[in-house]
C-alpha cells in the first residue's frame, strides 16, 4: 500500500526557484491589500453617503465579494472579462480578483470599526471648534484604524493564501504557479506541495508577527 518513495532532494533543489515565487506571491498580496484598503474606504464612504445609488453599489459589491467563491471572482476577472474583449494578464486578473474580495471584507470591517467609535467623540471635537472633516480625521479615524487593524491583518493572510488560486488562470510565476509547474514535470506532488505549504505557512506567520509588532508600536493606549 505505501510503496511511494519520497524524493525530497528534488524539492529542496527547487527551493530557490520556489522562494522567488514566494516573493511574487507576497507582492501580489501586498498590492491587493493596498488596492483593497483604498477601495474599501471608498465603499465605506459610499455606504454612508446620501445617494441611494452609491449605497446600493457598495452594498452589492460587499454582498458579492463575501458570498461567492474567491475562485469565481478571479475567474471572472480573467475569463469573464475576456468574453467582453477585455483581456487581462494572469497577474492583473489575479490582482483584481483578490482586490475585489479584499475590498468587500475590509469595507465590512471598516463599517464595524466606525460603529465602535461613539458619536460623542466627534461631537467633542466639534464643540472645540473643529470642522466635521477635522473631527473625523483627527479623532474618529485614528481610533477606527486601531479597531480595524487586526481584522485587516487576517485579510492580508487570506490574500496571501488566495494568490494560490492564480494557477487556475495561468499564473505561473508565483509560489503556487511555480510549484504546479515543478509538479507537472516531476510528478513529485507530495514533496513539492508540502514544501510550498511550509513556505506559505511561514509567510503567513511572519506577516501576522510583523502586524502585531507594528500594532504595538502604533497603538500605545
Amino acid at each position: 500500500m505505501l510503496n511511494y518513495t519520497f524524493h525530497w532532494n528534488q524539492a529542496f533543489k527547487a527551493l530557490p526557484q520556489m522562494l522567488d515565487g514566494a516573493v511574487v506571491t507576497l507582492q501580489i498580496a501586498l498590492l491587493s491589500m493596498v488596492l483593497g484598503v483604498a477601495l474599501a474606504l471608498t465603499l465605506t464612504a459610499f455606504r454612508l453617503s446620501g445617494s441611494r445609488i452609491l449605497r446600493g453599489f457598495a452594498a452589492t459589491w460587499v454582498e458579492i465579494a463575501r458570498n461567492t467563491p474567491a475562485l469565481f471572482q478571479i475567474y471572472m476577472a480573467h475569463f469573464g472579462l475576456g468574453n467582453f474583449g477585455i483581456h487581462l494578464s494572469p497577474f492583473t486578473a489575479l490582482l483584481i480578483g483578490i482586490a475585489f474580495n479584499n475590498a468587500g471584507y475590509l469595507a465590512e470591517n471598516f463599517r464595524g470599526a466606525l460603529k465602535a467609535i461613539p458619536d460623542t467623540q466627534a461631537r467633542a471635537g466639534r464643540s472645540l471648534g473643529m470642522t466635521p472633516i477635522q473631527a473625523f480625521r483627527l479623532i474618529v479615524l485614528p481610533q477606527m484604524l486601531r479597531v480595524a487593524f487586526l481584522p485587516a491583518t487576517n485579510q492580508m493572510v487570506w490574500a496571501i493564501l488566495m494568490t494560490s488560486l492564480g494557477v487556475t488562470v495561468g499564473m505561473n510565476t508565483d509560489l503556487a504557479g511555480i510549484t504546479q509547474e515543478l509538479n507537472a514535470r516531476s510528478f513529485r506532488t507530495f514533496e513539492f506541495f508540502a514544501l510550498a505549504a511550509v513556505i506559505y505557512y511561514i509567510i503567513a506567520k511572519l506577516v501576522t508577527l510583523a502586524a502585531r509588532l507594528l500594532a504595538a508600536r502604533m497603538f500605545k493606549y
Binding site: 460623542t120 471635537g125 472645540l128 473643529m130 483627527l138
Partner: peptide
Amino acid sequence: VGIVFQQWNAFPHLTVLENVMLAPRKVL
C-alpha cells in the same frame, strides 16, 4: 464658547497633554 459634558469624552488615542493641545494647534 467651551462646553464640557457629563461624559468627558477624552480622546483615548492621545495622551493628556495631546488631548489638550489638539484643538489649539489644529483649530487655532
